[in-house]
């Protein structure tokens, strides 16, 4: 039997069948844009509804969430305690004017730090820094700050910010936990946190308005607001970095203009004589 030699060969197979030649950056940008837009929409909607739901949380629960704040012992005669007491006095008068809901009470804390800042947080707690008191010209201006922070609490802004923050955090963890990409997790999680932990401009404006009403009712005029925003706009100009308190806030002069409009509409007096800063607040040591 004749043995025919088989026809064997390995022809060259063309490229681009199993791996495409498309530029990887193209896919990258399309995916990044698409996912960012989608995630922004979904997370935006989620965080809005979470913020809305959060203000339905009873204030008592909020207080329990925040009970890690150390209480100043009564009878403590240190300067710090006296300052906190005086600040509390101002806050109490302003809170009466703001018609706080049943069960909501404000606690003012004093912090010995150079930071020019004050903030409102969960459980009706307000923290005022020494740097802020030293930067302000009068009791009225300080009262405006305190009234502003009380207004945040009245409008439940801290718990809403927490609701938003938690939602955004969970969403990011969920999305990027699934993708298994540590880089995505880190980068986008970071951005999410940065946007979550602040009050919105609208919230600031609302707090300004409520605060001015209380200020006018207690002090008879709104001069404190004028002094406060003048001080802030000076600080904005002289410092390279903005004072902490202003970072998320609308420009001071814009806010003042908005308040002037408001006062004109409601017939409030803006000009008047401010009370000097109480000496006890300046005697730290």
């Amino acid at each position: 039997m004749e043995k025919k030699k088989p026809d064997l060969s390995n022809p060259e197979i063309p490229e681009g069948i199993n791996a495409s030649d498309e530029h990887p950056l193209k896919e990258f940008f399309w995916l990044l844009i698409g996912i960012t837009v989608f995630a922004a929409l979904v997370i935006g909607a989620l965080s809005l509804s979470a913020g809305w739901l959060a203000q339905k949380i009873p204030f008592e629960y909020e207080t329990q969430l925040a009970d890690h704040f150390p209480d100043v012992e009564s009878g403590d005669s240190s300067n710090e305690a006296r300052i906190a007491e005086r600040l509390q006095g101002i806050a109490d008068r302003l809170s009466v004017e703001q018609n706080l809901p049943e069960g909501m009470h404000i606690t003012v804390h004093y912090s010995d730090s150079d930071v020019v800042n004050a903030f409102a947080t969960l459980g009706g707690n307000i923290v005022i820094f020494r740097g802020l008191i030293e930067a302000l010209p009068s009791e009225d201006a300080l009262a405006m700050v305190i009234a502003h922070e009380i207004a945040h609490i009245k409008h439940r802004h801290p718990i809403r910010a927490l609701g938003r923050g938690v939602t955004i955090g969970i969403s990011f963890a969920a999305i990027f936990g699934m993708s298994g990409s540590s880089a995505g997790d880190r980068v986008l999680g970071e951005i999410g946190l940065l946007t979550a932990l602040s009050f919105s401009r609208t919230q600031e404006r609302a707090a300004d308005e409520t605060a001015l009403r209380a200020l006018v009712n207690v002090y008879g005029h709104g001069n404190g607001a004028i002094e406060l925003f003048d001080t802030f706009s000076e600080l904005e100009q002289t410092r390279f970095s903005e004072p902490e308190v202003l970072r998320t806030h609308p420009q001071s002069l814009d806010r003042l203009a908005a308040l002037n409009d408001q006062a004109e509409k409601k017939g409030w007096r803006m000009n008047g004589e401010s009370l000097p800063m109480p000496q006890v607040l300046l005697e730290h040591k």
Binding site: N18, P24, E27, L31, S181, A183
Partner: peptide, 25 residues
């Protein structure tokens, strides 16, 4: 790292993971 990042994004959407295809090829 880059391809892994792209693949991570792609896994959210589903479909062909091009960056891994060149790897296995």
């Amino acid at each position: 790292y880059f391809k892994k990042f792209v693949a991570g994004l792609r896994m959210l959407v589903g479909g062909r993971l091009r960056s891994y295809e060149t790897l296995v090829d």
